[in-house]
């Protein structure tokens, strides 16, 4: 070792380097972040797989539920027949799809924290709030486009099953088009909710537990409460409020109006996202 130590001292006698590489002409900060997130989204298997699964369960759900009601129509009670909502029934795959879409949203952030990739991401783009917002924009748009298409497909397939005595819906019916579009909007809000909770918890198990705890566990727990207590609280829960957007027949007299419910769900998402945007600037990564 000491032989190397006695090498002649190196002094900074070189001129400063002229680095030649410059950002592409016309590159904007926002556009660059979006391109980067777009590449990241499609370059791992999990995201396309979760998106494909979500689309699949929405479409297959339309078929299976449609076929189930057609074959079992005779066994339904008159009350059940009166409250039958052909649009909602064909879209109910959305309930299963929210698991895939929600997990995708949570993992989009917690995955980066778990591997430590978030440090590389934020070193390349130190505008943290922008990274978060653009990530949400990219994933939100992709989910919206795919799930809206899946909603229309499920609606078409479901209605084709409703023949004979089973009532079916047509896109021109009151509230029907809104409900079909609502399937895609609801799942978009779910993915954004998942991302916000993922950014807040920074842990996959905690993020998933909080998302599904709020969306799925809370309604069941509230329904256990006696009589009207549960009925009155239930409509204001995020998942229940949001799902009014893709129903035509409201499930209970206490239910919120479609856009009111969706607005309330969007408000919950906005509060979580706002907290995430504030915290991401303050916390060390």
């Amino acid at each position: 070792m000491s032989a190397h130590v006695t090498e002649p001292p190196r002094r900074p006698e070189h001129p400063q380097v002229r680095t030649r590489l410059r950002p592409r002409a016309g590159a904007t900060r926002l556009g660059a972040t979006a391109r980067s997130e777009w590449i990241k989204l499609w370059s791992v298997r999990s995201a396309p797989a979760a998106l494909a699964a979500a689309v699949l369960v929405v479409v297959v759900g339309g078929f299976v539920l449609g076929a189930g009601y057609r074959s079992g129509w005779a066994s339904l009670s008159p009350g059940d027949r009166r409250s039958f909502d052909p649009t909602f029934t064909s879209l109910r795959g959305v309930q299963l799809a929210q698991l895939f879409v929600g997990s995708l949203g949570v993992l989009a952030l917690t995955g980066e924290y778990a591997t430590g990739l978030i440090r590389t991401t934020l070193a390349a783009t130190p505008q943290r709030a922008q990274v978060l917002a653009v990530k949400a924009l990219v994933l939100g748009l992709v989910v919206w486009a795919l799930c809206t298409a899946a909603s229309f497909a499920a609606f078409a397939i479901g209605q084709s099953q409703f023949t004979g005595p089973v009532p079916h819906a047509s896109p021109g019916g009151p509230g029907v088009l809104r409900a079909v579009l609502g399937g895609g909007i609801f799942l978009t809000l779910v993915v954004l909710f998942g991302m916000a909770l993922g950014a807040l918890t920074r842990s996959t198990p905690l993020g998933l537990a909080s998302l599904f705890g709020v969306l799925l566990v809370l309604p069941v727990a509230v329904q256990l409460l006696p009589g009207s207590v549960g009925e009155r609280v239930d409509p204001y829960l995020p998942g229940e409020a949001g799902s009014q957007l893709w129903r035509v027949v409201p499930p209970s007299p206490h239910s919120l109006a479609p856009w009111t419910g969706a607005g309330l769900f969007a408000l919950y998402v906005a509060v979580a996202a706002g907290a995430a945007l504030v915290l991401v600037r303050r916390r060390d990564v």
Partner: peptide, 19 residues
């Protein structure tokens, strides 16, 4: 965890009320 939620919570909601 997602599978457990799907199997024990979402699937029953979907199919329990079918005809």
């Amino acid at each position: 965890v997602s599978t457990l939620f799907g199997l024990f919570l979402v699937l029953p909601v979907l199919v329990d009320n079918l005809p």
